[in-house]
Protein backbone atom coordinates (compact mmCIF):
# COMPACT_ATOMS: atom_id res chain seq x y z
CA UNK A 1 0.00 0.00 0.00
CA UNK A 2 1.27 3.43 -0.88
CA UNK A 3 0.66 5.20 2.44
CA UNK A 4 1.77 8.44 0.78
CA UNK A 5 -1.73 8.75 -0.63
CA UNK A 6 -3.20 8.93 2.86
CA UNK A 7 -2.34 12.61 2.84
CA UNK A 8 -4.43 13.09 -0.31
CA UNK A 9 -7.51 14.52 1.44
CA UNK A 10 -5.30 16.82 3.47
CA UNK A 11 -3.46 18.09 0.40
CA UNK A 12 -6.76 18.77 -1.36
CA UNK A 13 -8.07 20.55 1.75
CA UNK A 14 -4.98 22.75 1.99
CA UNK A 15 -5.10 23.63 -1.72
CA UNK A 16 -8.78 24.56 -1.44
CA UNK A 17 -8.66 26.44 1.86
CA UNK A 18 -5.10 27.76 2.16
CA UNK A 19 -3.49 28.14 -1.26
CA UNK A 20 -6.53 29.22 -3.29
CA UNK A 21 -7.60 31.81 -0.66
CA UNK A 22 -4.09 33.28 -0.73
CA UNK A 23 -4.35 33.37 -4.53
CA UNK A 24 -7.61 35.28 -4.18
CA UNK A 25 -5.89 37.76 -1.83
CA UNK A 26 -3.29 38.30 -4.58
CA UNK A 27 -6.03 38.74 -7.16
CA UNK A 28 -7.89 41.30 -5.05
CA UNK A 29 -4.69 43.20 -4.27
CA UNK A 30 -4.01 43.77 -7.97
CA UNK A 31 -7.54 44.53 -9.18
CA UNK A 32 -10.07 47.27 -8.60
CA UNK A 33 -13.72 46.94 -7.60
CA UNK A 34 -14.70 46.06 -11.17
CA UNK A 35 -12.07 43.31 -11.49
CA UNK A 36 -9.72 45.32 -13.75
CA UNK A 37 -5.96 44.98 -13.23
CA UNK A 38 -4.55 47.92 -11.31
CA UNK A 39 -1.57 48.89 -9.19
CA UNK A 40 -3.56 51.59 -7.39
CA UNK A 41 -4.02 49.48 -4.24
CA UNK A 42 -0.30 48.90 -3.94
CA UNK A 43 0.43 52.56 -4.61
CA UNK A 44 -2.01 53.63 -1.90
CA UNK A 45 -0.06 51.56 0.62
CA UNK A 46 2.60 54.28 0.79
CA UNK A 47 0.22 56.39 2.87
CA UNK A 48 -0.07 53.55 5.37
CA UNK A 49 3.67 53.06 5.74
CA UNK A 50 3.88 54.97 9.06
CA UNK A 51 1.16 52.70 10.48
CA UNK A 52 2.98 49.60 9.30
CA UNK A 53 6.24 50.82 10.82
CA UNK A 54 4.53 51.67 14.09
CA UNK A 55 2.98 48.20 14.25
CA UNK A 56 6.37 46.68 13.50
CA UNK A 57 8.34 48.54 16.16
CA UNK A 58 5.66 48.13 18.82
CA UNK A 59 5.51 44.39 18.30
CA UNK A 60 9.30 44.04 18.11
CA UNK A 61 9.54 45.98 21.36
CA UNK A 62 6.86 43.76 22.93
CA UNK A 63 8.66 40.60 21.77
CA UNK A 64 11.91 41.78 23.36
CA UNK A 65 10.10 42.68 26.58
CA UNK A 66 8.42 39.26 26.59
CA UNK A 67 11.83 37.63 26.14
CA UNK A 68 13.38 39.65 28.98
CA UNK A 69 10.46 38.88 31.29
CA UNK A 70 9.84 35.34 30.09
CA UNK A 71 13.39 34.01 30.18
CA UNK A 72 13.93 34.26 33.95
CA UNK A 73 10.47 32.77 34.51
CA UNK A 74 11.10 29.85 32.15
CA UNK A 75 14.50 29.35 33.79
CA UNK A 76 12.98 29.35 37.26
CA UNK A 77 10.31 26.87 36.08
CA UNK A 78 12.91 24.53 34.62
CA UNK A 79 14.84 24.49 37.91
CA UNK A 80 11.83 23.70 40.09
CA UNK A 81 10.93 20.24 41.43
CA UNK A 82 8.87 18.03 39.06
CA UNK A 83 5.62 18.61 40.96
CA UNK A 84 6.16 22.35 40.99
CA UNK A 85 7.01 22.28 37.30
CA UNK A 86 3.63 20.69 36.64
CA UNK A 87 1.90 23.41 38.64
CA UNK A 88 3.81 26.18 36.87
CA UNK A 89 3.03 24.61 33.49
CA UNK A 90 -0.65 24.51 34.35
CA UNK A 91 -0.63 28.12 35.51
CA UNK A 92 0.89 29.19 32.18
CA UNK A 93 -1.53 27.10 30.12
CA UNK A 94 -4.64 28.27 31.97
CA UNK A 95 -4.74 31.87 30.69
CA UNK A 96 -4.17 30.59 27.14
CA UNK A 97 -7.42 28.61 27.38
CA UNK A 98 -9.53 31.55 28.56
CA UNK A 99 -10.95 34.36 26.47
CA UNK A 100 -8.23 36.89 25.71
CA UNK A 101 -10.96 39.41 24.88
CA UNK A 102 -12.36 39.36 28.41
CA UNK A 103 -8.90 39.43 29.95
CA UNK A 104 -8.01 42.49 27.90
CA UNK A 105 -11.31 44.07 28.91
CA UNK A 106 -10.29 43.56 32.54
CA UNK A 107 -7.16 45.59 31.83
CA UNK A 108 -9.34 48.41 30.56
CA UNK A 109 -11.13 48.66 33.90
CA UNK A 110 -7.81 48.49 35.70
CA UNK A 111 -6.21 51.29 33.69
CA UNK A 112 -9.15 53.58 32.84
CA UNK A 113 -9.26 57.17 34.11
CA UNK A 114 -12.03 56.04 36.46
CA UNK A 115 -10.51 52.57 36.74
CA UNK A 116 -9.30 50.61 39.74
CA UNK A 117 -5.72 51.90 39.79
CA UNK A 118 -6.67 55.53 39.36
CA UNK A 119 -9.50 55.24 41.91
CA UNK A 120 -6.99 53.85 44.37
CA UNK A 121 -4.57 56.69 43.63
CA UNK A 122 -7.36 59.23 44.17
CA UNK A 123 -8.40 57.73 47.49
CA UNK A 124 -4.76 58.01 48.57
CA UNK A 125 -4.87 61.66 47.69
CA UNK A 126 -2.61 61.33 44.65
CA UNK A 127 -3.35 62.67 41.22
CA UNK A 128 -4.56 60.08 38.67
CA UNK A 129 -2.21 58.94 35.91
CA UNK A 130 -2.91 58.69 32.17
CA UNK A 131 -2.63 54.90 31.98
CA UNK A 132 -4.79 54.11 28.98
CA UNK A 133 -5.20 55.25 25.35
CA UNK A 134 -1.46 55.46 24.78
CA UNK A 135 1.38 53.43 23.31
CA UNK A 136 2.46 52.08 26.68
CA UNK A 137 -0.97 50.58 27.33
CA UNK A 138 -0.96 48.78 23.96
CA UNK A 139 2.51 47.36 24.65
CA UNK A 140 1.33 46.26 28.08
CA UNK A 141 -1.64 44.54 26.45
CA UNK A 142 0.62 42.77 23.96
CA UNK A 143 3.07 41.63 26.64
CA UNK A 144 0.24 40.46 28.87
CA UNK A 145 -1.52 38.50 26.13
CA UNK A 146 1.48 36.89 24.46
CA UNK A 147 3.87 36.32 27.37
CA UNK A 148 2.75 32.68 27.79
CA UNK A 149 3.62 32.08 24.12
CA UNK A 150 7.17 33.14 24.94
CA UNK A 151 7.50 31.21 28.20
CA UNK A 152 6.25 27.90 26.74
CA UNK A 153 8.90 27.30 24.05
CA UNK A 154 11.67 28.66 26.32
CA UNK A 155 10.68 26.26 29.07
CA UNK A 156 10.46 23.33 26.61
CA UNK A 157 14.01 24.02 25.43
CA UNK A 158 15.45 24.66 28.90
CA UNK A 159 14.23 21.40 30.46
CA UNK A 160 15.80 19.47 27.58
CA UNK A 161 19.31 20.81 28.24
CA UNK A 162 21.52 17.95 29.38
CA UNK A 163 22.68 18.61 32.96
CA UNK A 164 25.96 16.89 32.16
CA UNK A 165 26.83 19.70 29.74
CA UNK A 166 26.49 22.23 32.54
CA UNK A 167 28.54 20.06 34.89
CA UNK A 168 31.19 19.61 32.21
CA UNK A 169 31.42 23.38 31.74
CA UNK A 170 31.80 23.82 35.51
CA UNK A 171 34.50 21.14 35.61
CA UNK A 172 36.33 22.96 32.86
CA UNK A 173 36.45 26.07 35.01
CA UNK A 174 33.42 28.12 33.95
CA UNK A 175 31.83 30.30 36.59
CA UNK A 176 28.04 30.70 36.80
CA UNK A 177 27.93 33.60 34.35
CA UNK A 178 30.10 31.76 31.83
CA UNK A 179 27.99 28.59 32.13
CA UNK A 180 25.00 30.71 31.28
CA UNK A 181 26.50 32.68 28.38
CA UNK A 182 28.50 29.81 26.86
CA UNK A 183 26.22 26.80 27.41
CA UNK A 184 22.65 27.56 28.47
CA UNK A 185 22.01 30.62 26.32
CA UNK A 186 23.33 29.17 23.02
CA UNK A 187 21.37 25.96 23.63
CA UNK A 188 18.15 27.91 24.19
CA UNK A 189 18.35 29.78 20.88
CA UNK A 190 15.69 27.59 19.18
CA UNK A 191 13.30 28.39 22.03
CA UNK A 192 14.09 32.10 21.80
CA UNK A 193 13.46 32.10 18.05
CA UNK A 194 10.17 30.28 18.26
CA UNK A 195 9.10 32.38 21.25
CA UNK A 196 9.81 35.65 19.46
CA UNK A 197 7.95 34.39 16.38
CA UNK A 198 4.97 33.37 18.46
CA UNK A 199 4.81 36.80 20.12
CA UNK A 200 5.70 38.94 17.11
CA UNK A 201 3.22 37.48 14.60
CA UNK A 202 0.03 37.90 16.63
CA UNK A 203 1.24 41.21 18.08
CA UNK A 204 1.98 42.84 14.72
CA UNK A 205 -1.43 41.89 13.36
CA UNK A 206 -3.58 42.54 16.42
CA UNK A 207 -6.56 44.83 16.24
CA UNK A 208 -8.44 44.11 19.44
CA UNK A 209 -5.68 45.19 21.83
CA UNK A 210 -5.12 48.50 20.06
CA UNK A 211 -8.86 49.15 19.80
CA UNK A 212 -9.32 48.60 23.52
CA UNK A 213 -6.15 50.07 25.01
CA UNK A 214 -4.66 52.35 22.34
CA UNK A 215 -5.49 55.92 21.48
CA UNK A 216 -8.05 56.22 18.68
CA UNK A 217 -5.61 58.21 16.55
CA UNK A 218 -2.76 55.69 16.72
CA UNK A 219 -4.15 52.67 14.89
CA UNK A 220 -2.16 49.58 13.96
CA UNK A 221 -2.05 47.76 10.63
CA UNK A 222 -4.45 45.12 11.98
CA UNK A 223 -7.05 47.82 12.72
CA UNK A 224 -6.75 49.18 9.19
CA UNK A 225 -7.17 45.75 7.60
CA UNK A 226 -10.11 44.96 9.84
CA UNK A 227 -11.84 48.22 8.90
CA UNK A 228 -11.36 47.52 5.18
CA UNK A 229 -13.42 44.36 5.56
CA UNK A 230 -15.84 45.23 8.35
CA UNK A 231 -16.19 49.02 8.18
CA UNK A 232 -15.41 51.07 5.07
CA UNK A 233 -15.69 48.12 2.74
CA UNK A 234 -12.71 48.10 0.39
CA UNK A 235 -11.52 44.49 0.11
CA UNK A 236 -9.04 45.36 -2.63
CA UNK A 237 -7.10 47.75 -0.43
CA UNK A 238 -7.49 45.37 2.50
CA UNK A 239 -6.08 42.53 0.42
CA UNK A 240 -3.08 44.64 -0.61
CA UNK A 241 -2.42 45.42 3.08
CA UNK A 242 -2.74 41.78 4.06
CA UNK A 243 -0.23 40.95 1.38
CA UNK A 244 2.25 43.50 2.70
CA UNK A 245 1.74 42.31 6.27
CA UNK A 246 2.30 38.72 5.19
CA UNK A 247 5.44 39.68 3.28
CA UNK A 248 6.77 41.56 6.32
CA UNK A 249 6.18 38.59 8.58
CA UNK A 250 7.67 35.99 6.25
CA UNK A 251 10.69 38.25 5.82
CA UNK A 252 11.19 38.69 9.58
CA UNK A 253 10.63 35.01 10.40
CA UNK A 254 12.84 33.93 7.51
CA UNK A 255 15.65 36.28 8.55
CA UNK A 256 15.47 35.13 12.13
CA UNK A 257 15.52 31.45 11.20
CA UNK A 258 18.39 32.13 8.81
CA UNK A 259 20.58 33.89 11.37
CA UNK A 260 19.84 31.46 14.18
CA UNK A 261 20.51 28.47 11.94
CA UNK A 262 17.22 26.70 12.69
CA UNK A 263 15.50 25.42 9.59
CA UNK A 264 11.75 25.21 9.19
CA UNK A 265 11.13 21.69 10.32
CA UNK A 266 13.13 22.11 13.52
CA UNK A 267 11.74 25.55 14.24
CA UNK A 268 8.22 24.21 14.21
CA UNK A 269 9.14 21.20 16.30
CA UNK A 270 9.93 23.45 19.25
CA UNK A 271 6.44 24.89 19.17
Amino acid sequence: MKSKWLSGPYVIWMVLFTLIPLGIVFYFAFTDGAGQFTLANIQRLGAYLPILLRSAWMSIFSSILCLLIGYPVAYCMSKASPTRQKIYYMLIMLPMCLSFLLRTMAWVSLLEDTGIINNALRSLGLSPLPLIRNTGAVILGMVYNYLPFMIMPLYTVLIKIDRRLIEAAQDLGCNQVQVFTKVILPLSVPGIVSGITMVFVPAVSTFYISQKLGSPGAVLIGDVIESQFKGAYNPNLGAAMSLILMALIFLCVGLMNHFSGTDDEEGVATL
Binding site: V11, V201, A239, L245, F250, D264
Partner: peptide, 27 residues
Protein backbone atom coordinates in the same frame (compact mmCIF):
# COMPACT_ATOMS: atom_id res chain seq x y z
CA UNK B 1 6.51 21.17 -0.22
CA UNK B 2 3.74 19.58 1.87
CA UNK B 3 5.44 20.56 5.15
CA UNK B 4 5.94 24.06 3.76
CA UNK B 5 2.22 24.39 3.03
CA UNK B 6 1.49 23.05 6.53
CA UNK B 7 3.56 25.91 7.91
CA UNK B 8 1.58 28.61 6.09
CA UNK B 9 -1.40 28.80 8.47
CA UNK B 10 1.00 28.62 11.43
CA UNK B 11 3.23 31.48 10.32
CA UNK B 12 0.52 33.58 8.73
CA UNK B 13 -1.12 36.03 11.09
CA UNK B 14 -4.66 35.00 11.96
CA UNK B 15 -6.10 38.14 10.44
CA UNK B 16 -4.65 37.24 7.01
CA UNK B 17 -5.98 33.68 7.24
CA UNK B 18 -9.36 35.09 8.22
CA UNK B 19 -9.42 37.67 5.44
CA UNK B 20 -8.27 35.14 2.81
CA UNK B 21 -10.99 32.66 3.80
CA UNK B 22 -13.59 35.43 3.91
CA UNK B 23 -12.67 36.42 0.34
CA UNK B 24 -12.84 32.77 -0.75
CA UNK B 25 -16.30 32.34 0.78
CA UNK B 26 -17.52 35.61 -0.73
CA UNK B 27 -16.28 34.39 -4.11
Amino acid sequence: IVLGVTNIPLTNPEIVTGVALALLFAF
